[in-house]
């Protein structure tokens, strides 16, 4: 029953219960309205400041019901009052706003947790606001209450706010019996951050070292299985089909054929731009493709069967650490006719 908040109580965490002063912008038109200034007189501006502030502040006698509520707040408890038909009003009133009847004298402790029903995000708080950082004004129905209370929710980010968000009060250490004894509500803990870090020291291993040493010399090294005759690239020590050791090295040319490819529209740190083409390239004489970038051609002009050649970075830019593929920038079209697939 989200709409059953007593209108006055729900409207302001200060207003209906105990006016904290200063939050009401214009109590009677006496402060803000400069009205009556004759138009078209640029010389004399008769506006002067005139402040009406009762010394020490007005008092508000709480009466028994709101007084009990504020007294409990001072003890870091939240209570509501029960109506004749059994509902619990929070903040409490002396009367049931729906019927006009007196409430019962029965107070019920509610919360401290509650559920956000709706909210408005305050992106640029004013000096009078309860928090100096962005926050939400929210209608919060405390557990056990039948009505909602307006208060601030310190959620950090508007995206953290949603109907149904569970929140709890953050109490001030020094409490005086005022709605601001609750500094704000804060979301319940639903998530923690658990940093996980695994650090490895990697070596490329014998086969890949041999291959990458070749790349460092400008050579693409493959190998041929003595059992099935297939040529593998990069160089490896055993045949994945036959399981036997491979001993025959074979240098492969840096030309090949695009067998198939993807046009990637999601950025990748290893690609110079979006879109980029990652292609299966079967080097001439090899029986397994490698996956590499295709460049120097618009992405949508790449074709299955396109002939390509490795584009090596200029010698002076070659990586100081030789064990890397970075000496090859990408593969680019050779201009030859497409190969049959």
């Amino acid at each position: 029953m989200p709409s059953e908040a007593p209108p006055g109580a729900a409207a302001s965490p200060g207003g209906a219960v105990a006016d904290p002063g200063g939050t009401v912008a214009d109590p009677g038109g006496t402060v803000a309205d400069p009205g009556g200034v004759p138009a078209g007189d640029p010389v004399v501006d008769p506006v002067v400041d005139h402040v009406l502030e009762f010394p020490g502040g007005y008092t508000r006698t709480t009466g028994p019901v709101i007084g009990r509520f504020l007294t409990e707040l001072r003890d870091a408890r939240i209570v509501g009052v029960r109506t004749a038909d059994g509902r619990v009003l929070v903040p409490p009133l002396e009367y049931d706003p729906a019927t006009g009847e007196d409430v019962t004298g029965e107070f019920a402790e509610v919360g401290p947790a509650g559920t956000v029903q709706s909210w408005a995000w305050v992106g640029a708080p004013r000096p009078e606001h309860p928090l100096a950082r962005p926050f939400a004004w929210a209608l919060i129905r405390l557990d056990g209450a039948d009505t909602a209370l307006v208060h601030a929710v310190d959620a950090g980010d508007a995206r953290a706010m949603r109907p149904g968000l569970r929140v709890r009060p953050r109490w001030r250490a020094e409490r005086t019996g005022h709605i601001t004894d609750i500094e704000s509500f804060v979301p319940e803990v639903t998530k923690i951050v658990s940093p996980v870090r695994a650090e490895y020291r990697l070596r490329p291993g014998r086969a890949l070292t041999r291959f990458l040493e070749g790349v460092a010399r400008g050579v693409l090294l493959g190998c041929r299985c003595g059992s099935c005759g297939k040529v593998y690239m990069p160089y490896r020590l055993s045949c994945p089909e036959c399981g036997v050791a491979i001993t025959e090295e074979r240098e492969l040319p840096d030309t090949g054929t695009v067998t198939t490819f993807a046009i990637n529209n999601l950025p990748d740190p290893r690609a110079p731009e979006v879109p980029f083409v990652s292609a299966y390239i079967l080097l001439d004489g090899a029986d397994v493709p490698l996956i590499a970038l295709v460049g120097d051609v618009p992405a949508h002009e790449v074709r299955q069967g396109m002939r390509v050649r490795a584009v090596w970075a200029p010698r002076q830019e070659w990586a100081p650490s030789p064990l890397s593929m970075s000496n090859i920038k990408w593969f680019a079209p050779t201009g030859e006719p497409d190969a049959e697939l």
Binding site: P204, T260, L266, S278, I291
Partner: peptide, 23 residues
Amino acid sequence: THPPFNASLVVGAGGYFAPHIRE
């Protein structure tokens, strides 16, 4: 995870399967 020393550039699950779909 882009481990070092990789001889082939592999680009996520979608990037991996897209060429097979094209074929």
